[in-house]
Simulated scan of single mutants.
Amino acid sequence: MRRTAPRQGLTAVTGAIDVHTHYVPHGWPDLATVAGGGSRWPWLRVTSERDAMIMVGSDEFRRISANCWSGELRLAEMDRDDVAIQVVSPTPVFFSYDRPADQAARVARIFNDLALEICAADPGRLLPFCQVPLQDPDAACAELDRCIAAGHRGVEIGNHVGDRDLDDAGIVTFLQHCAQRDIPVFVHPWDMPDSPRLQRWMAQWLTGMPAETHLSILAMILGGVFDQLPPSLRICFAHGGGSFAFWLGRVDNAWRRRPDVVGTSQQPPSSYVDRFYVDSVVFDHHALRLLVDLVGPERVLLGTDHPYPLGEQPPGSVIRTNPLLSAEEKLALLAGNARTFLGL
């Protein structure tokens, strides 16, 4: 749990870089027709020029507004909030990991192409990240390569495919491809467990999402993935890495005291905190200070979860107003670290 000196040479921020935002197109083809069958596909029920509802089959999933699909509106909001660049990533409900891989590949192609249309409003400021059919590593690598050639700047993946976590051999193959191509990866939790206890108070989002991200970081560490992948892999976990930071001491203790059952990593879990990034969406000054102390001030990136209701508004406020961060750390978190992660 080391502290690393801040990166040198950062003296000013000309605008923040937000690595965690989402888009939803203003409509798309009927996915059952495009994919060749199946039920309960997402579709968009448009209620006005500025509002719509994401539907999954006949169920309402999420109400959204025009800033999900309008590049021009996003740019106006960015100007208002002193955000220079947004990474624009898929909304995880469209991943389709539970479908046959050929269907998920067709869906990914549709949404990836629509993302480019949204970001065409200013490709220098709106940087699209694609989605891939992660259940099939060959298809995932092929779609990633197609998207990078078309103008995407990275990839967002869900944190698991059914019961396969990030230490699954096929997913590791895809991450190796990303490392070889020097493509940044953003990991977002999705498909949280459900039960009557989790259907109150948005508990799936308030407890399930942090737990999912924590579990998948552990899968990469205890499953030996970071021992297999080159240090050059640029991978970032959403929502501050979930509950991982608070419980790393417990994981280290378990690794030392029960090596017969806890993981296959070559080093203690805390030895790997410099192998990944986390975003800053933790909404609390002390929690953000803990993250910076844990992974180092060069490994935390501004993220907001814009434009969804649980996102941070205004962007970067927990960084900018944080009395526990130095001026240089704030500069690194607001923009400098993201430039490294994105290869700008």
Rank of each mutant, 00 (worst) to 15 (best):
H22G: 00
Y272Q: 11
D51V: 06
D18Q: 00
W43V: 00
R62L: 15
G240N: 05
V56L: 15
R40K: 14
F283I: 02
A101P: 04
R153C: 07
I171Q: 02
H239W: 03
F226I: 05
T321L: 13
P6S: 03
L248K: 04
P6L: 12
V132P: 05
A16T: 00
A332R: 11
F174H: 02
W41P: 00
L206I: 15
F129S: 01
F95T: 10
G27L: 01
A238P: 04
R62P: 02
R289Y: 00
G241P: 12
I171N: 09
H306C: 08
H152G: 00
A211Y: 14
D79K: 10
G38F: 09
G241R: 05
Y97W: 12
A245L: 01
V13Y: 11
S58K: 12
S65Q: 12
R289Q: 04
L331Q: 15
P100W: 03
L324A: 09
R3N: 12
L291F: 10
T33C: 06
C236G: 05
P90V: 01
D165S: 13
C178V: 08
P193I: 02
T33Q: 10
P210R: 00
T11K: 10
A32C: 02
M192E: 13
A150S: 15
M53H: 14
H285L: 02
P307F: 05
V273P: 09
D81E: 09
P123M: 07
C236S: 13
T173D: 06
A327Q: 14
T47Y: 05
L233C: 02
Q228I: 07
H152Q: 04
W205G: 07
P42Y: 01
R106P: 09
